[in-house]
Write a protein that binds this DNA or RNA. Structure first.
Lengths: 207, 207, 207, 207
DNA sequence: GATGAATGAGTATTCATTCAT
DNA sequence: GATGAATGAATACTCATTCAT
């Protein structure tokens, strides 16, 4: 992902919060960041905005996150933790050998759902991302597991399973991104979800 | 496109260049902007950077472009002018009733080509865009013409031509964007172009 | 007052100082602004100059005053608060029916005193003033109260009390301004104060 | 006048225009400067504005005036030349021993007239003035001649002719300035002219 | 731990002035 | 002589980050 310069920075939370109170503060700050980033974009958001939204002082914010990037990193890590589980569920379905329509529908529903929750934040991860390589690699690994599951699933079904698997994931992610972020006027998102499923199914079955 | 706030600003070139020398300067500045934006991103780029790259003083830059946004606008207008022609060519092919494989291949080749030239700049147009509504509308109109051509083309071939046309354009644009911007390690772009064509063809023929 | 364009800007202090330390800072900054404006004029003064003079960083200055104008506004408000009291004292004297010589002397002494403290700053208020209408109105109201007191005072003494009252205030203000700002070489200010009193007294008694 | 820093600069027209055409250009530029300064103020006016208003290129403007200040200087010189004559007329009247009412009226009418023509420009001369000492001295000399005439005139009429003469000139100039620039709502300028005359007459006659 | 006051490098933009054509 | 393109020092203002209380 990303591309373009990535300054070398500390991204780790500065101190691992120990007490319950401070763990709560970390949570509040992170949620505030999520909301303000989502609403205003990464560059447009100031750390003061986030602190204000969180109802803490700017000093407290920096107590837990050494810089602005670290907030995004924290958010991305939270995101990663969230998708880890549901990705695993998908992998299981594929490995269980559900019919293609089910496999496709599940994958599409899953990724559209992921984007619907916070489309702008998602965009920020992908586009504005001052994310450290390690995290991008983590994400790639996660996605890779799903891709490999699809590859296994497709081995007996299409001629070029690796390529088709990659296409499927690219398409779903990319369309989910676009359709949630810029919903066209003439169809609603559910229709697009269905259409995406249809298209992929045709692709797989033509395979 | 876009999303998130858009300040209201003047974007028109400030001064119509009269002498030949200044027309050249405008060109040089715009090209420098394209290169620096492409390399470093919009926010990260300084107007000083652009002036330096263009080999002119910062004052000269502002003589022709009243602010940073205006440079991006200038670039987008140039882009618009470029694609207008080639889009028209595509529309003609579709209306001439070429076979589906040709129609699909042409569309895919066309949009991948568009992105290959300056993928980051493209991303900036789509994501960072402080572009005035008028220009976005211009672009939408252009894209709309192609989509309608596809819709006409599909009327006799699929059940929901409007939806399928929109899907095709979404997919091609979106994959071209992603694949040129973040080329995965295991396949090259040509392979993706072919795969994209295959997928769409299957979709249309399943129609 | 004023004349010539007045941009529409926020002038309110940006942040209400909470801690004692910051209240002191605000004071220091304002006083620095007074001194530098007085010495160098409004346009010639740089916000950096003021910050340097105040011994704070430029960021601190902007923490409390959102822009350069706001500093002048702050100064003017301070000025307004100062004169409010003494104007009231004058009004009381007039309403108490002191003899004309006393009334005149008090008015003259008062306004000369006002200008002597910071003649250039005064000029800036009057001439360079990017002051919001509200404040100018506040000042006009204050001056108006004094003028009306004079008008009441003159009702039984001259034929055109409103006109004469206005003339008196115009003259005193205007001469105080000029004589403190550009003291002529051949007489000192006290002499001018006396002469101003004499002149007005003659005017009133001729009335 | 003036006060506050005065940068040391060339103020002379850069080349004495010889040919008729260029003399016309100088005239046009100067008139343009007068109009734009009057309308927008000195600081707010750019040399480009003046060139545009004059209908010449910026290069041409600088051919005749080496910098922005020089334009103001040119304007002031023109002003000086204009008042020289009329001041002389006043001096003659005073020396001819016209009655006090006539002397006063003439002086008042004269100076109000001077300001009425271009009150803002006048203000600029007095307040924004980056005028070289020499010119200020020239003006002082001119004013001095009138003041001395008044002093002579008053020798037999008042106790302190020098002081009274200076007061008269201060008052007239200063009130003319204020009343033309900020005419109060309740009386018109003619009324103020009359009132000014009345006041001075009372002052002289109280002697 | 928390607060919020202080910091200052960084950036877009202006405009008087110069100089090649 | 005239033009207008080019110059670049100067300046207001922001915002991520630090640190005294």
């Amino acid at each position: 992902m990303s591309g373009i310069r990535t300054k070398n920075r500390r991204h780790e939370p500065r101190k691992r919060p120990i007490q319950a109170r401070s763990r709560a503060t970390v949570e509040v700050v992170l949620e505030a960041a999520a909301q303000v980033f989502e609403r205003a974009g990464y560059h447009e958001t100031t750390t003061d905005d986030i602190a204000a939204r969180a109802g803490v002082s700017i000093g407290t914010l920096y107590q837990y996150y050494p810089n602005k990037d670290a907030l995004l990193v924290g958010l991305f890590e939270r995101h990663l933790a969230e998708i880890e589980q549901s990705f695993a569920g998908l992998v299981d379905q594929l490995d269980a050998g559900v019919p293609p329509r089910v496999a496709t529908e599940a994958t599409v529903a899953h990724l559209y759902g992921l984007h619907r929750a916070a489309p702008n934040l998602h965009r920020i991860f992908v586009e504005d991302a001052p994310l450290p390589a390690r995290l991008l690699a983590d994400y790639a690994a996660l996605e890779g597991r799903l891709r490999e599951a699809w590859e296994r699933y497709l081995t007996t079904r299409v001629a070029e399973p690796a390529l088709v698997a990659r296409m499927i994931l690219s398409v779903v992610e990319t369309l989910a991104h676009r359709h949630t972020l810029y919903p066209p006027p003439d169809f609603d998102i559910d229709t697009f979800e269905r259409a995406t499923t249809d298209m992929l199914l045709a692709y797989v079955q033509a395979g």
